[in-house]
Amino acid sequence: MKWVMLIILCVSGPAWAGEARPLADDPVAEARLKHLAVELRCLVCQNQTLADSNAPLAEDLRREVREMIAKNMSDQEIIEFLVSRYGDFVLYRPPLKATTTLLWVGPFVLLTIGATALVITLRRRAHTVVDVVVTDEEHRKVEQLLAEGGKRS
């Protein structure tokens, strides 16, 4: 029953109220524009993407990109068009270059250094701490741990 209602509603929908038109003439091109524009920086704004900004320059650039999409240019070509005019600054995803190598590998270098340091320190500790006599402090701790309800987990 519900199905039937739904179908009737769908079919009769446009008769009693117009379905709103998409703002863009070509929704497919618009989706591609959006996809590109979220990774591009609006140059005049504080820190906004080309997709989010309402600045006049952003509107012009969106128009420019729309035209390039209509001309069937590839994403790569469109990005090159912008970079050749405004430099890498327009890209929110910095291209991998000599100057940005550190930026892109940095996080993983940091992680590797951190992990290595941790393993080395723990190994070294295991050697140095092994033969320490149990101090009062530690003894108390053990007792405390036991007292705290058998914290096994």
Partner: peptide, 8 residues
């Protein structure tokens, strides 16, 4: 000058 944004 570069920008580092959400994609990064």
């Amino acid at each position: 000058k570069i920008s580092v944004g959400p994609p990064y």
